[in-house]
Design a binder for these strands. Sequence first.
RNA 1: GCCCAUGUAGCUCAGUCGGUAGAGCACAUCCUUGGUAAGGAUGAGGUCACCGGUUCGAAUCCGGUCAUGGGCUCCA
Length: 641
Amino acid sequence: MKKITVTLPGGEKRSYPAGVKICKILQDLEGEWVEKVLVAKTDGHLVDLSYPLQEDSNLSFFTFEDEEGKEVYRHSTAHLMAQSVQQLFPEAKITIGPPIENGFYYDFYLSTPFTPEDLSKIEERMQENARKNLPIIRQEMSKETAKEYFKKREERYKLEILEEIEEEQVSLYSQGEFTDLCRGPHLPSTGRIKTFKLLSVAGAYWRGDERREMLQRIYGTSFEREEELKIHLDRLAEAKRRDHRILGKKLDLFSIHEEIGGGLIHWHPKGAMIRQRIEDFWRKEHLNRGYQLVFTPHIASEEVYRISGHLENYSDLMYSSMEVEDRPFRVKPMNCPGHIMIYKSHLHSYRELPIRYAELGTVYRFERSGVLHGLFRVRGFTIDDAHIFCQPQKVEEEVISVINFSLEFLKAFGFTEFAVYIATRPEKCVGREEDWVRATKALEEAAKKAGLPYKIDEGGGAFYGPKIDLKIMDSLGRSWQCTTIQFDFNLPERFDISFINDEGKAERSYLIHRAILGSLERFFGILIEHYGGAFPLWLAPVHVRVMTVTQEGDKFAQEIYERLHHEGIQVNLDLRNEKIGFKIREAEEEKIPYMIVIGKKEAKEKTLSVRARRKGDLGKRSLDEFLIQIQAEIAQKSVID
RNA sequence: GCCCAUGUAGCUCAGUCGGUAGAGCACAUCCUUGGUAAGGAUGAGGUCACCGGUUCGAAUCCGGUCAUGGGCUCCA
């Protein structure tokens, strides 16, 4: 009998007869981890534990702790769900059911939609099927045989998938009476799936194509241990509590009105105060870093968008034109043309470059009603935009400085973890090869010099240039893309922008678009959720509330108010005839960082009883001490509460 | 835009079988002057999203419209 050599993860080599199954090898191994192995990898691809090894192989193993293990685990949970759904709804047709971040889904065709009650029934059935510990068996067969099989079962979606598969051999996975066309791999048996939860049901188009029929999608998640599931569900509940749409209403920060239109944000005084603080900081930092602030109009002749190419490429996100003295105008969907026109208004020497124009530019883009979502997806928003015009050899330097700027700026809001993505040249693109190479290299070098690990999104760039995106991690561990730095090889050509080089000749300028926060609206939404509505002092719309225990404190409270107000502190005064506990409760609910409690004692001693949000009574101090303390806290932009 | 769900007082939500609308919070007035997360009483507040239909009668049943929410990239 033929022998093969199996190399184990530690490097140890063992000899086995050819055709040995991986699970057999696992049985010979020692350690607690052996039982946790869900899937194996041999020579670069993931395989079932029942996979027979025919040749010498390098083996590695994965458990739920690994991304690979998690995906297989959840993919098998999706199959368990599909099996249970077909038992309860025999008319349901199976389609696809992949693992996704934090869970899985499965799409079914069913003429009547699932109800929330159906979900718990399906869950129960899944428990039963898991308890039965059905072996999950892989079968390989020719495409033709598989087609006959699914034809008999009237699984037309599976037939459609089969049509598109190029290989001649396909694999089917069975558990009990349920069989699905699937590449795999899967867990050895349904009993390996320990704990799961079905979360929601939604419509989804077959193949994500809106011209195709609507399927019923069930989302769920699964874990190995009950505690892990609980942590995950708690996190979802916490995210719901922090939902910026709810907090925005409760804290009176912003609103959206049916009468005015979806996706159009109204910043209430408190929200506007926060925005002012962000904008003031933004302007100051931009001036410090050699940017020049500009303003550009909200509408522009259609001609400029014809030149820029937006009319051709982006008209589906632009609002339709309006006639102004027989000339078509458009509401601006981006700020670049305006900045370019400013640049072009006179000749530029290489000595002047780089020129950096920055604007908090409000733009309007058409988003379909169904995708609008609070502050995250809107129709009118303000980009913290800038366009950098520079010489080709200066791009790396510029990108590094933008990255460093972003990191420092975002740090002021308490974001310290970043992920970096570089998107490279797509198939269809404009610009010279050498420019793409130079620009892409500049992005990589810049990421390296900033000490940031990055991932390459091959072919993910815009048609007009490569880009680098920074994602921030919020307090719930969710990531958000904010900063984007994009090269543009399209607009410089189209608008013919140039500078005069040291030989006195006109040379094409490089153009970099960049935004640090992305959109103020969206960033505000992220901040609300990141802080759970409790803004740090430097951003808080109200810094301090002075409140009295009885009327005997009124006069002194008034004095404190006047002084703080005079010093530029956002302060308000609560002299109402209410109990102190009630006043504190209200201030806590409004998430005001500091409360000053003034009673008879304080009025007599001329001291302040200071209470910090969520922390309680901090004790007494003088007005001067308190003022110095909070002024320092504001100046430092402290985010620690 | 499409599928599903939801739409009742400023907010959060009850409302049974079709019989003309309810709570808590907020608001107003009064009483209460109190010590670190809700003192008490009284009152005002509604074209039940909108339009149409069925019915003697519609918040409730039916149809349509609008808005909001969950989704609509993850490829057997």
